[in-house]
Write a protein that binds this DNA or RNA. Sequence first.
RNA 1: GGAGAGGUGGCAGAGCGGUUGAAUGCACUGGUCUUGAAAACCAGCAAGGGUUAAUAGCCCUUCGUGGGUUCAAAUCCCACCCUCUCCGCCA
Length: 426
Amino acid sequence: MLDPKLLRQDLDNVVTQLAARGFTFDRERYEALEQARKTQQVATQDMQAARKTSSKKIGQAKAKGEDVAPLLAEVESLGDQLKQAEQGLSELLAELHDLLAGMPNIPHESVPAGLDEADNVEIKRWGEIPTFEFEPRDHVDLGEQIGGLDFAAGAKLAGSRFAVMSGGIARLHRALAQFMLDVHTQEHGYQETIVPLLVNKKALYGTTQLPKFADDLFHLQGELEYSLIPTAEVPLTNLLQDSIVEASELPVKMTAHSNCFRSEAGSYGRDTRGMIRQHQFEKVELVWAVHPDESWDALETLTRHAEVILEKLELPYRRMALCAGDMGFAATKTFDLEVWLPGQSAYREISSCSNTEAFQARRMQARWRNPATGKPELLHTLNGSGLAVGRTLVAVMENYQRENGEITVPEVLRPYMQNLESVALN
RNA sequence: GGAGAGGUGGCAGAGCGGUUGAAUGCACUGGUCUUGAAAACCAGCAAGGGUUAAUAGCCCUUCGUGGGUUCAAAUCCCACCCUCUCCGCCA
């Protein structure tokens, strides 16, 4: 959520900056609503003040044993008027709030211009693209060849966009998650966290999946209104919901390995082959909550933490700065990491690291106490994948494949696999 | 699932229709004292929002959440949520 004060004070700028990411703001509606709100709020609060004063007088008079009848007559009519005014106000506030809640974050000045992924800017490349003395296969073919990656089984049990892993592939997948967690907790200083995979609406609102993106989620039926998390960013970031963190406790750095569930509504026909886009996948998530002055350094550090995983795995990647129009709703700036997939001869997204500044923190009232003023102020929150485990498995399979279909186990994973040197036929 | 208890400020914990945004303690901040620190003493210290040039004043809201009664609700009524204890069931 943007700062309502910013809209009141600098609407022109907000409108143009949001236009940069392709968002059209209904300015006239906003201005009319805001005008009405102001009038209504001042009037309502005046009436509340009047009622308060009268009630106090009545209390005092009664205590002295005086006759309160005239005072009662005075406030008699106030009740209905006030009720009406309060209702009118709350309707206006709700409408304004809905309007605000639908507005995306303002892109940082360093974000490249552009409306779609064609305008994303490559920041750097790392690693050598591997060459093969044979025609490299994609992970689907590899999985078929050595077994352990079964999409038909996934479809039988659940439907499309599900897979069953088994044997060496499943083990490799588990090793990847363990490895990532160990690096982040032991080398990068994150707090390991295990979080609920089902969350409530308030949490989803806090990280901005709601109200706008309800269709991207799986919602449980039944009297309890749970949804499956699309990313551990939701529970991790919401740990700070309605709290005030001491300055000495910053930065807060948390990591969680979790399953993630996405409906993938609107992506019919995209990435239908293989593990790239599944309804259920695993991810190791990184979340920071920081002093507002430090979020830009934090974004760089966080992104590096994700890159380190790829480098340790010796997977070639590039870092992209997303253009304004390609960024997620809550982000002021996003770096995507794209890993090289020989099966597609292309770089594919494997991590997305964003600074949301106070956008999420404002919604969830995540604050820190500024020792200089003694007052609570909004934190800045960041999140990034470190990394998407399923996609990392794909990258390992395709980059480490041998002609016979076996997968060489990357050096850093071997301690997690009893020093197994390759994954062969299941 | 059954029975009971409870949800109040950063934490603990009073209040149970009327100058209560809320006693008290701890924590925190400033001061006195001290070579310095601690202790002791004194003072300050909730959050959100509105108005405004203002982080100045003034005002509103908030005692789990949502409704209701009343001139007036932390206090009374209803519903829901959560926590704890016991029993049952169960990874």
